[in-house]
């Protein structure tokens, strides 16, 4: 543990230089804890202690290499890709996703935008593992997502709602959040409509308490129980599974609509990137 901490320090320093937030993720979280009385934010003292030594930092560092290395059949780096603020511009890009992209005429989240970059710019086939493998700390996706997201640490969530499609997707996501169905009659609000509620021992975040919600949707995060860095799409998949609903398609607009809504619910709150969760 001590050795890991020693190793993590230079990592934090190195990434700190490129991640433009002044405060590391654990301090962003601490400020939120100080600002509101929340059982959700404070539930794991152990995780709070480990935050400075978050294994997701390593995942992000691997992502930095992948991002800047020319790859794929076209042998170009992802610096050529636009994540919303111009080619290669990552600072603050993630907190403004999902957003409308003119080149695809579509509202896209980070994962779909990375797929677009890999297939259209770098020339990877859709079934190439770089594109198709979405989960696990060892996947290109999680490495690159973590790296890009870290460039928005401490910045306020602010997904644009200017283009009519951005508004339509956000509003449809809201309907989905409250839409009950299935054999267990659940919706997202069943678990995320009230502060201080627990599933067994786990305190749930409330969508209506933005200081809680920003942590809830600050992905990628290292999930201690999974021993892996996880994404927003992974969280959504898990929620629908628990609700006994069908598997959500990460490339479909339904998942992006839901993300447009949940990001809007955190508007103005600082992102914790990368986060650490139970």
């Amino acid at each position: 543990m001590f050795k890991k901490a020693l190793l993590a320090l230079p990592v934090a320093l190195a990434l700190g230089a490129t991640a433009h937030a002044e405060k590391p993720p654990e301090e962003v979280l601490q400020d939120l804890i100080d600002s509101v009385d929340s059982a959700y934010l404070t539930q794991s003292e152990q995780n709070l202690l480990m935050m400075a030594d978050n294994p997701a930092m390593w995942t992000g560092m691997d992502g930095e290499d992948l991002f800047h290395t020319p790859r794929g059949p076209n042998n170009v780096s992802m610096e050529a890709c636009d994540f919303g603020k111009g080619p290669g511009v990552l600072e603050g890009a993630y907190v403004e996703l999902p957003r409308y992209f003119e080149d695809t005429d579509r509202v896209m989240d980070l994962e779909n935008r990375i797929v677009h970059c890999m297939t259209e710019v770098q020339g990877f086939a859709a079934d190439d593992p770089a594109v198709a493998r979405r989960h696990g700390s060892g996947s290109d996706h999680m490495k690159i997502q973590t790296y890009i997201a870290m460039q928005s640490n401490g910045m306020e969530w602010n997904n644009p709602l200017d283009h009519p499609l951005e508004i339509a997707m956000r509003d449809a996501g809201e309907v989905m959040f409250y839409r009950r169905s299935g054999i267990a009659d659940f919706n997202c609000n069943t678990c995320h409509g009230e502060s201080g509620k627990r599933i067994r021992a786990s305190v749930l975040p409330s969508k209506d308490v933005p200081q809680e919600w920003t942590k809830a949707m600050s992905w990628p995060a290292f999930r201690v129980g999974h021993d892996n860095v996880r994404s927003s799409q992974h969280r959504i998949r898990g929620c629908y599974w628990q609700m006994r609903m069908p598997r959500i398609n990460p490339d479909g607009d339904a998942s992006i609509a839901l993300m447009s809504y949940w990001t809007d619910a955190s508007r103005g709150q600082p992102a914790i990137l990368p986060d650490m969760k139970r």
């Binding site: 449809a172 069908p246 479909g252 607009d253």
Partner: peptide
């Protein structure tokens, strides 16, 4: 739009068999 995204725009895997018989589609039908 929500109905469209769920049922028409490949939002979910709707053709998987479910334990009670039928497919996952019915888990999304209200």
């Amino acid at each position: 739009l929500a109905e469209h995204l769920i049922f028409e725009a490949n939002g979910f895997v709707l053709d998987q068999e479910v334990q009670e018989g039928g497919t996952t589609r019915q888990r999304m039908v209200q």
